[in-house]
Nucleic acid binder design. Structure first.
Lengths: 109, 109
DNA sequence: AGTATATTTGGCATAATAGCAAAATAAAAG
DNA sequence: CTTTTATTTTGCTATTATGCCAAATATACT
């Protein structure tokens, strides 16, 4: 495998990894409905301000969201909304996984 | 946030997390061209057999790939090929991220 | 049965993540 | 200018992830 591909795989997996956490995925989904300030995620996710702030930074570094300071608050928004289109396929992965496990039970392995 | 959504966010983020590693993303991309045995990934990724085996298990547990033993070898294949369609959007994330960083340099921050 | 090949599993060391609490910043309000 | 509010950063701890080596399994070959 050449170096170029390796670097590119790293870049792409970084984006997926950023979305690979329940709180960060929640943030992305909520931003799909419009911009939000940090405090709203603190309430929704039920975790510390400092924790939310870190998650937001992971998503920002990955290039998925952007921030804008207005007064005392910082508003975040989705920079690349197409990431939300992943959900349909992900739901399919989960659904077919569940179906297969059902079949397995029927066959007693 | 209700319990149902929380559980669902965990399930969905598990799928994304599984793809959020360069070696596992390489595996998924390769399987997009057809089934492969473990040894092929060992060569391509340049990591230990045991390491590849573990990555394959992560993808399998996530419901993304499946395995089939034939003779001495185990062949893996993509169970839900739509995951490869994520790439276009991910490339967009990377591209616009790079562009923005360019602009930043022009503005000296 | 005995050996070779392909893959998985267990054990272990190291690195990366996640979360909280407390301290630091920044802007607005009094 | 002091206080309050919103957010980020730092320090720390606990948990999880990664990767190698060696051992275990499974199947084919002789």
């Amino acid at each position: 495998m050449d170096e170029r591909r390796k670097t590119y795989l790293e870049a792409k997996s970084r984006v997926l990894k950023a979305l690979g956490h329940p709180t960060r995925l929640l943030i992305a989904e909520e931003l799909g409905r419009g911009e939000r300030c940090v405090c709203e995620f603190v309430d929704m996710a039920g975790v510390d301000y400092s924790t939310v702030s870190r998650h937001l930074n992971v998503l920002k570094q990955a290039g998925i969201i952007e921030d804008e300071k207005r007064g005392k608050q910082v508003f975040y928004s989705l920079r690349v909304p197409c990431v939300l289109s992943f959900m349909e396929c992900i739901e399919q992965v989960i659904r077919t996984g569940a179906e297969d496990r059902m079949k397995m039970i029927g066959q007693d392995q």
